[in-house]
Design a protein around this nucleic acid. Sequence first.
DNA 1: TTCGTTACTGAATGGTGATTCATTTTCTAT
DNA 2: ATAGAAAATGAATCACCATTCAGTAACGAA
Lengths: 200, 200
Amino acid sequence: MAKRINKKYEAILEAAIQIFAKYGYHRAQVSKIAKEAGVADGTIYLYFENKEDLLISIFREKIGHFVQKAQRNLKSVSDAKQKLFHIIALHLRYLETNPALAVVVQMEVRQSDPQVRKEIGELMQAYLTLIEHVMEQGKLSGEFRENLDTRLARKMIFGTLDDLVTSWVLHQQKYSLQALSKPVYQMFVNGITSEKGGEA
Amino acid sequence: MAKRINKKYEAILEAAIQIFAKYGYHRAQVSKIAKEAGVADGTIYLYFENKEDLLISIFREKIGHFVQKAQRNLKSVSDAKQKLFHIIALHLRYLETNPALAVVVQMEVRQSDPQVRKEIGELMQAYLTLIEHVMEQGKLSGEFRENLDTRLARKMIFGTLDDLVTSWVLHQQKYSLQALSKPVYQMFVNGITSEKGGEA
DNA sequence: TTCGTTACTGAATGGTGATTCATTTTCTAT
DNA sequence: ATAGAAAATGAATCACCATTCAGTAACGAA
């Protein structure tokens, strides 16, 4: 219950990521997580309310960490296009570097029950807002179209990154994810058309 | 076991869609599905192997149906851009018209069990291929950039639609999904930039 | 009507695994 | 050292629910 931030807490959380990634949330027994973490089954309940709390905590810790990192990183960049490129690159790099986390994030969120999904959605919000802000900045600076629907653009960007990572996970991480940053960025910026004008 | 296509089979499948949508796969008891379908628990096992088979069957029947519909629809259109627009519109319309199916498709695809995932992935493949073919056609006809990575473009399109539908589902279907077809299409075609040139 | 076949029923079974808690170990302060 | 508190243990519990199957009903051919 008491969420003491200490070695054991960390160990259990890391073990949970590994085991959730390997077996999926529903097939991951708490006893397996305990074994992986090198603690007794009951110990987990000293640090987490229940199995669900374990999943939510992964998001709280890791997404929180990532968003902070991204915010810090973007401070050193001024124009919106560069910021967009950084977001794409960071997103892909972070998950490529943490494959087990990627599996959990991509695969396990959606099959949890509505309450858990809601909580995770709220944790995600900070990141989505970050992307939207960049879109807005780009509109104001004239880098992006002034009639751009920023929310739609954000969904497009997030949806694309999400699908890229899911594919990569399902293909057992056989290719470089980060390498896609540039082409993806270009596609957002320029669209798929050859010339200039796509009609309505 | 014997998959007789008849009234009861259909009733159980429809009930499963409703119950999976309402509770999520793991919280949906087989007995609830039976009740919703107006049959005894055991009857389900005369038509489906097990609970998993129920989920896979939903995909087999419904995705199969959708892809056929899309293929038929696209025959009447010649240029790639128009085809792309049709795919977007059909995708959004189909799921908006079948909200419970949308919930199941969006939320339960990423089943943790590898076997189920594999089977669903294969069923999805026909659709993904369809999108990629349109991209290729567009490249050949000169409508799309000749250096376009068609697989990447496909992932972008599918990822975006996927995220749009998921948002819509999580927001309890409060707004029109189909209405997004046009702006989404425009964004793919033209990108988000105001002018012409996004640099590298 | 009768008999055989096919379809259906739903209570009982059995495996599973999250969670609890009485007990033991480790830690801390005096 | 030692007592008392805090942390950790892990075997036992027990709720849960997919699946089975012995029994019943419906059907249809003769």
